[in-house]
Simulated assay, not measured.
Amino acid sequence: MPAPERRIFDSPCKSVCRIDERVGWCIGCKRTRAEIKAWSTASSSEKRDILARLPGRAAAEPELLAGGGS
């Protein structure tokens, strides 16, 4: 069964909540500290912008952690 579609006000939090300093974002949800802090007061447009950045971070993370981004 496919996962339900995410609504814009749903947090992308995965309950991992650990910032990896090598990449600068949470290893669970891929948000930065600033994005996590701003989430509860962010507008729908700001949330869409944050959510749009997450797939690119997830795709880049293995290379960055392997040292390819330095």
Rank of each mutant, 00 (worst) to 15 (best):
M1D: 13
M1A: 14
M1S: 14
P2Y: 09
P2C: 10
P2F: 12
A3D: 11
E5K: 15
E5H: 09
E5M: 11
R6L: 11
R7W: 05
R7Y: 08
R7F: 10
I8M: 07
I8A: 03
D10L: 07
D10K: 01
D10H: 11
S11Y: 02
S11Q: 01
S11I: 04
P12S: 05
C13R: 05
C13Y: 06
K14L: 14
K14C: 09
S15Y: 11
S15G: 08
V16R: 13
V16K: 15
V16I: 15
V16H: 12
C17F: 04
R18F: 05
R18E: 14
R18T: 10
I19W: 04
D20F: 01
V23T: 14
V23R: 09
G24L: 01
G24N: 09
G24S: 08
W25E: 04
W25R: 05
W25P: 00
C26V: 01
C26P: 03
I27K: 15
I27F: 11
G28Y: 02
G28F: 02
C29G: 05
C29H: 04
R31F: 03
R31L: 08
T32M: 02
T32K: 06
T32W: 04
T32S: 13
R33M: 10
R33K: 15
R33L: 10
R33S: 08
A34M: 06
I36F: 07
I36S: 04
K37T: 13
A38D: 13
A38F: 10
W39M: 09
W39A: 02
S40L: 11
S40N: 11
T41K: 15
T41D: 04
A42P: 02
S44H: 12
S44E: 15
S45L: 14
E46Q: 15
E46W: 05
E46K: 12
K47V: 10
R48Y: 10
D49E: 15
D49V: 12
I50E: 03
L51I: 13
L51K: 11
L51T: 08
A52L: 09
A52D: 14
R53T: 15
L54H: 06
G56Y: 07
R57E: 05
R57I: 00
R57L: 05
A58L: 14
A58R: 15
E61D: 13
P62W: 03
P62I: 01
P62Q: 05
E63G: 09
L64F: 10
L64C: 14
L64Y: 09
L65S: 08
A66D: 06
A66R: 12
G67K: 03
G67Y: 03
G67A: 01
G67N: 01
G67V: 00
G67E: 01
G67S: 01
G68M: 00
G68R: 04
G68E: 02
G68N: 03
G69V: 00
G69E: 02
G69S: 06
G69F: 00
S70N: 09
S70D: 04
S70E: 08
